[in-house]
Design a protein around this nucleic acid. Sequence first.
DNA 1: CGAATTTGACCTGCGC
DNA 2: GCGCAGGTCAAATTCG
Length: 319
Amino acid sequence: MEKKENMGVSVKGEDVVDSSSYLVNSYNQFSSVFDFCEVEKSSLGFMELLGVQNYSPLLDLPQLSTMSVMTHDTLKAPSADTGKEYSEVLNQQPATPNSCSISSASSEALNDEHNKTLLDQHEDEEDEKQKINKQLKTKKTNQKRQREPRFAFMTKSEVDHLEDGYRWRKYGQKAVKNSPFPRSYYRCTTVSCNVKKRVERSFTDPTIVVTTYEGQHTHQSPAMCRSGFAGAQIPPPAGGRFSTNFGSVLQGNFLSSSQFQQQHYQHQQLLVNTLSSLALPYNNSSSSSKNSTFTQESSFLRDHGLLQDVVPSHMLKEE
DNA sequence: CGAATTTGACCTGCGC
DNA sequence: GCGCAGGTCAAATTCG
């Protein structure tokens, strides 16, 4: 198996592996963004991403911005065991072959939508409703539910819900087994965009926020629209609006409010740029997921996000 | 008052 | 089949 070393970013070669056997090194080994990532070639074009995202010592990002990326077509839901699961993933060799079936909006999802409409039309008729529900159940037992591609971000942050340029509506919260921290469920507020994300704190390290995105946005980020450029800019934190819920304590170091705000601001910008250009790009085609994967790659090649502002051009990958 | 969040109930998948 | 845990729904509540 060929292995490319690339400025702290390691990209494995040809083999396609099971979802559980690759991805990112232990978050507690990270000293900076993408300090060390190990991503399979097959995984959603992230090789391209990581090839471009050379780690540079010039990237003097604060601890708060420590972030790792996971990508996975059927990423196992991070749970209270989050830390354990993720750490177990590390340093493992591929276990089983995987065809890496990345799906965009699945036919099942479309069926669900259609059936929901049916349900609406017959709201008054209980019998009809029951029949439809039975049909739904039958379908779901016959056809295994397909998951949207998922991307997990592990972020060292004191704020649970990180601003990523999109607008989200919270639709649920659940207690997670063996964890004192609940998991929150968010949906993109844009009509016809069914991207979801889960946010939870790692119980092994409460400073780590695990954000899992599912699906692809069918629209541009509102932040991008505002800025008019792919390198979205979040407005700098404006005094009173900024949350300091957690008392600005990080790893035993007390930060002043302004320090915290600045770090959080940098962090959010990084997140926006990364998500905008990579994991969840604007994709107005309803083409197959593989195509959209390459769209993600090419979009990133055009835009290196925050890094392009920081990393000298010659450091960026050229092919 | 509309939008967003909360929260208990319900649904679904999976392991035993 | 049953129980458990994750995920979603939707009514109630809170917020701006």
